[in-house]
Design a protein around this nucleic acid. Structure first.
Length: 234
DNA sequence: GCCCAGGTGGGTA
DNA sequence: TACCCACATGGG
């Protein structure tokens, strides 16, 4: 484990609040159990996974990360960058958009190596807003990817908003799902206690529910949050 | 076969 | 601002 960074997986905290957000958290946690996300062993693995997971199933992204681990290039940005582009593309093919993602991955790794002292620890030493601005300035890093890297990789207190967060939050009457990314992020950050483990666990639970019920099952039948659902919402 | 996935960037009006 | 489209593989 890299020094100076919180573990990639933290235990799920309890949240005693009486708000709708808190009750939904408790219901999801009670039904599914702790997530201990992100599903990665190292901060670098989180970053690579976050880029490879863009607009694809986690399964494909995970297979791509496994390929890189098997090649023994996940120890450092330097090791990954030493892999020839064609080889990198070949290994990450299962995650889709493999040419685009190979290029974006390299842009990020070169920045990490050049500007951050070679690793995620350097990124974590930057103040949150500065780190976020720098990430967003990189080609291929949008708000969700940046926040996944910051929250799960660098241990920054940022709530990650993704398609499931938006869909579930809208469906259960938390906020308007058409709100801009930043406003949904602010919605959570204004309501959740300032606890990194809670930020991570909440997001992870929403993803697990989204992937488990919103997508793969035709109805909300059996969803741990069905009693919170508001009728008529998409 | 067809649709969509834990997005992002670029183009157009 | 609000839509469109490209990017690519894999699973339901």
């Amino acid at each position: 484990m890299s020094p100076g960074l919180p573990p990639v997986r933290l235990p799920a905290p309890s949240w005693e609040g009486s708000s709708r957000a808190a009750r939904i958290y408790r219901a999801a946690l009670a039904a599914l159990g702790p997530s201990r996300w992100w599903p990665a062993e190292t901060p670098l693995e989180v970053c690579v996974g976050a880029i490879l997971a863009q607009n694809t199933s986690w399964k494909g992204a995970s297979r791509a990360v496994e390929n890189l681990l098997a090649r023994g290039v996940m120890d450092s940005p330097r090791a990954l960058l030493a892999l020839p582009l064609e080889e990198l593309e070949k290994e990450i093919r299962p995650s889709g958009y493999f040419r685009q993602k190979a290029r974006r991955l390299r842009i990020f790794l070169e920045w990490l190596q050049g500007e951050c002292g070679g690793g995620v620890e350097g990124l974590a030493r930057l103040p949150l807003e500065e780190a976020r601005r720098a990430l967003l300035a990189l080609e291929g890093i949008g708000p969700e990817t940046a926040d996944s890297i910051l929250c799960y990789g660098a241990g920054k207190l940022v709530f990650v908003v993704d398609a499931y967060t938006r869909r579930i939050g809208g469906r259960h009457g938390l906020f308007d799902p058409k709100l801009p990314y930043e406003e949904i992020r602010a919605w959570f950050e204004a309501r959740l206690p300032a606890d990194l483990a809670l930020y991570r666990e909440y997001h992870a639970l929403l993803v697990r529910i989204g992937a488990g019920w919103c997508r793969t099952r035709p109805s909300c039948k059996g969803c741990p949050l069905s009693r919170f659902a508001r009728p008529g919402l998409p």
